[in-house]
Design a protein around this nucleic acid. Sequence first.
DNA 1: CAGTGAGCGAGCTTCCGCTTGACTT
Length: 888
Amino acid sequence: MSTLVIVESPTKARTIRKYLPKDYRVEASMGHVRDLPRSAADIPTDLKGLDWATLGVNVEEGFEPLYIVPKDKQKIVKELKSALADADELLLATDEDREGESISWHLLQLLKPKIPTKRMVFHEITAEAIQAALENCRQVDQKLVRAQETRRILDRLVGYTLSPLLWRKIAPHLSAGRVQSVAVRLLVNRERERLAFHSGSYWDLKATLDKNKSPFTATLIELGGQRVATGSDFDPATGQIQANRNVVLLNATTAQALRDRLIQTDWRVSQLESRPQTRKPAPPFTTSTLQQEANRKLHLSAKDTMRIAQKLYEEGLITYMRTDSVHLSEQAITAARACVSRMYGQNFLAPKPRQFTTKSKGAQEAHEAIRPAGSAFVLPNATGLSGRELDVYDLIWKRTIASQMAEARLTLITAQIQADNAIFRASGKQIDFPGFFRAYVEGSDDPDAALESQEVILPTLTQGDALVCQKLDAQAHETQPPARFTEATLVKALESEGIGRPSTYATIISTILDREYAIRRGNALEPTFTAFAVTGLLEQNFPDLVDLRFTARMEQTLDDISTGEVNWLPYLEEFYLGDKGLETQVKEREQGIDPSSARAIHLPNVKAEVVVGRYGPFVVMENGDAPVKASLPQDATPGSLNHEQIEQLIRQKLEGPDKLGLHPETGEPIFLLSGRFGPYVQLGEATTENPKPKRASLPKGVTAEEVTLDLAVTLLSLPRTLGLHPETGKLIQANQGRFGPYVVVDPDGEKEYRSLKAGDDLFTITLERALEILAEPKATRGRTKKEALKNLGNHPGDDAPIQIFNGPYGPYVNHGKVNASLPEGVTVEEMTLELALPLLAAKAPKGKAGTKNTTANKSTPKKTTTRKTTPKKSTQSTSTRAKKTTSG
DNA sequence: CAGTGAGCGAGCTTCCGCTTGACTT
């Protein structure tokens, strides 16, 4: 007989197994095993008709939750049950936080063990820690479980009460939630600030000064005893200098005049100041800070970062990647310090081990900080990793090492320089001892500030020194609106408010993008019209729920529930059914919310109304008694739309499309129109006989204003025939496609495509050049060609190579079109041809398959964007939700 | 791919937090 231990993740199961006695069996629950029904399909048949079944909470009967085992967990539960049958003791070893405690409780409810059962908790996987945990087991903490259940129910009530309201008032398939709606509101509020922003301009002077042939620069700060205005003196609402600021504002003329006067005067050092500064290293990574840094330094999305971190974790290279703790274990500190003294020397070691404390709200700290795993950190170049995986590991390694390094010591030097009645300032920064800078400098969200961290050397100066002014320039500046959120800054903001959890930051962003509350433009997240409409409705009717502090207050109550100071049921009753309660408020306000005004958005910079419609946003402009409506381009957002664009759209609607002119040969009119996919030109009018006249999109980078009749004629002349293939006699054409210009052989038959190279031009390319390009092999899809991790040799059957590649789910063996994962516990190094053959045989397609299926490598153009509608299987994931796709 | 935005309507959409999984004629 034996003891069954249940943990959350299979990787953790594998690691702790070796610290447990032989007869202990460790299994993973894969996170939560029960939940409220997600949709109608999850509701048991006997409860189907009940009005509270979809909500999954019987609010009239003591807020009793309806728990089900989701489809993807049924197999796991079955396996756990059968493992339990062979055990004579059960240890529940899920994480020691609210969610972990709840998982243990649900396991108890489901498995109903008849054998002795205990709750085991540990924070570190070492022989001693596990031993200590075995000796100090306890029972499941019911109060903590209740706190989790309250959280779960509250989130369900918010989400499943507000979302339907949005369907009724704005558009179907929208969503609202305690976390996502606040995140969207942050984006919207920032965009509003940007829209209300008025830029101001100011000038100053920049001098290049010299002493003993070492030039340095200084900036004008004071004139005639008055400070010279800078960006922070402006009122963002007006673009003017704020009231009560005693400053001089220079413009182009006054700055130039001042320049001409000062260049002739004497320059002298009037004041010198130098002060020492020390800098401490940043704490080791949490999920949130890792995502931020990977976004700033490696330009990875939160989702990509997590996928890579998961991989590193599974390879045993780093500790758990979903954590809110900055705590380092004894083992980690020792390992980091050993690395520092070996690689940088004793000088660079922090005199005492440095331990950090978590400051973010609501942290639960069930895990360590993210750091290289083990008691001796693997050096980045010894990991065998490459590409992004190596980059992320390197980042984690450096940040961890740096946290145990000595402080950096700097000297900041400020010199004031007098030139007649003007004062200039020069700042220098000298690094006296780099300390942890050697290993790691935290990235910045502000590129200007990032520059600042570099050393700026000033020559040795003394008060009264005479200086030579080599150059003096007047420079113009403009105040900038506050920057849009990026993934990094949004995650940072959410975390500091205690909103969302490490396991959810990446999915919060995915949800916002999936629901089209925001689009990603460059690194920035830009809120859409839908986001404005939804945020407006929620702010007007449920201000408390979209308040940044709502989650913090909820967390406080949950803490009080877990200590027994607050009773959970009255809290939920008040929250949902009370006078100010959610359900009460929805019922009260439902009538008053007019759908057409909820869908309408008024923007300060635009004199028309934008309406969120079934087919995307459109503008409505008053025009006598029949308002004019016009669709907006698909990527239009409140922040990208300007009044000229709208006027053009409206004018086109009123006067018909702009006519560019007549076709020089056929005499047909050529129109410039604007559609959902941007501007395009059209030859002739659409009539009933010819409903689809020839059309062509403008090439990238050409705006509607720049289009000439010539360009339109050339675009409409496409495809351009280059000639016949000298060998096969097949037609060769050049054309403009979704991925840019290309050439094609046999456009009505076999269709062999190649993209044009950087130097080639669609309109001048010759048949000879086209043949050259066509002779080259097709470029491999994706960014980089995959390199095999290891070659195992050739298959005895067909002599084709068998190789190991790195895939999204770990390394796998490849032979032709057959892929197979490595057996559990076998490393890439240990794999051999002999081990691979049976794996491949088991995966190989049976019978005749294999010959036809060449599509994988051939042309399978993705239908729409990168978002593919994946199989109906994974009903869990939000990103796989079927979408209304308007392309084809 | 390309000019719409209301109406009749069955049944459905949706939350947050834990965790990995891997389709076929």
